[in-house]
């Protein structure tokens, strides 16, 4: 994608996201609008850049949508991209639903939105492997929940489904879907961090104390410079994911992005002082979303541990991405 085309898509997607963000939750169907804009064709032509643009803009505008379901469903090879996904609950285990020995499916997971989807894809432990089962939305009960970010639109669901009431998705690789989801979430975390840093920079440029803008103080400058450095690192790691190493690359990218976004959120809160800690100021909403998205599909701390364990097992560290390619390549 050339720079001009990318800018055009960024404007379109950014405009959509800002409008939806201003309208508030539930007013627009982001996924339906994306489809109308030709999203499906774009993802075929530009599978990585389209996701990068969409999720960075979604993060920056603090929009909660089912765009992640769309990406994960595509990675599962589902033709019907409107299928909802029962994401594993945050925690130490990779999946939180399971198929028991008697064939019954026990579901514990999170949906994005109340989910108008008729069908839900459920990753479930089956023996030593993970399978993906398709159940009807009606088979799930909603559990009351309260979390860091109620506006993120997560719904906790549970259910027990008899073998005859679900079907297994053929050839679906949950690991591949997780990688696609992590990559999208990492971009969204980058979008959140980028927005927070821009806003905090704007604030310290304007706000004066001791007869000078706050942004002239080194202590303030250095915190924001560190936040920005983390943001660049997250973008670089995302760009370094190679097609034949997406599972590991996406894992590292989400860990780097989650860590960078949480650190950025803390630094931005610090430099905006008391106002940044109020309900009225937008920052806490970004801070909440950062934690919510970090928790989904593996928090940066969980992923960090997984990387360390892999290293201990291999006896050496994997190199992320290959050496840079020259202009002739």
């Amino acid at each position: 994608m050339d720079a001009e085309t990318r800018e055009m898509y960024r404007k379109t997607l950014g405009g959509l996201m800002r409008r939806v963000g201003a309208e508030g939750a539930g007013e627009s169907d982001v996924v339906a609008e994306l489809r109308e804009l030709g999203w499906d064709e774009l993802t075929v032509e530009e599978p990585t850049e389209s996701v990068a643009l969409l999720f960075e803009e979604q993060g920056a505008a603090l929009v909660a949508s089912r765009a992640l379901d769309m990406v994960v469903a595509a990675a599962l090879g589902l033709d019907d991209r409107s299928v909802g996904i029962a994401y594993p609950e945050p925690g130490p285990t990779n999946v939180t639903s399971a198929i028991n020995d008697d064939g019954r499916l026990t579901i514990a997971g999170l949906l994005l939105g109340a989910s108008e989807a008729a069908e839900i894809a459920v990753p479930a432990q089956a023996g030593t492997g993970v399978v993906v089962a398709i159940v009807s939305r009606g088979a799930l009960s909603v559990v009351e929940m309260e979390g860091f970010d109620d506006a993120a639109g997560f719904t906790r669901v549970t259910g027990v489904v008899e073998a005859r009431h679900y079907r297994l998705l053929d050839g679906a690789a949950w690991a591949v879907a997780v990688a696609a989801g992590r990559r999208a979430l990492a971009h969204e975390l980058v979008g959140l961090a980028s927005h927070m840093i821009d806003r905090a920079a704007g604030y310290v440029i304007e706000r004066e104390q001791f007869g000078r803008p706050l942004g002239t103080f080194q202590a303030v400058q250095h915190r924001l410079a560190d936040a920005y450095t983390g943001l660049v690192a997250a973008r670089s790691v995302l760009a370094a994911i190679e097609p034949d190493d997406v599972l590991f690359g996406s894992l590292v990218a989400k860990a780097v992005a989650g860590r960078a976004a949480i650190r950025a959120a803390h630094s931005c809160t610090q430099v905006t002082g008391a106002i940044g800690c109020t309900w009225e100021y937008e920052l806490h909403r970004y801070l909440r979303r950062t934690h919510a998205l970090d928790a989904l599909l593996g928090s940066w701390r969980a992923l960090r541990k997984a990387i360390g364990q892999q290293m201990a097992e291999d006896g050496h560290a994997a190199r992320l991405g290959s050496a840079p390619e020259g202009p002739a390549a």
């Binding site: 690192a233 670089s236 590292v252 990387i307 290293m311 992320l320």
Partner: peptide
């Protein structure tokens, strides 16, 4: 590893 991957990729 996260620090080194950040350095390497950037």
């Amino acid at each position: 590893y996260l620090d080194l991957a950040s350095l390497r990729a950037t």
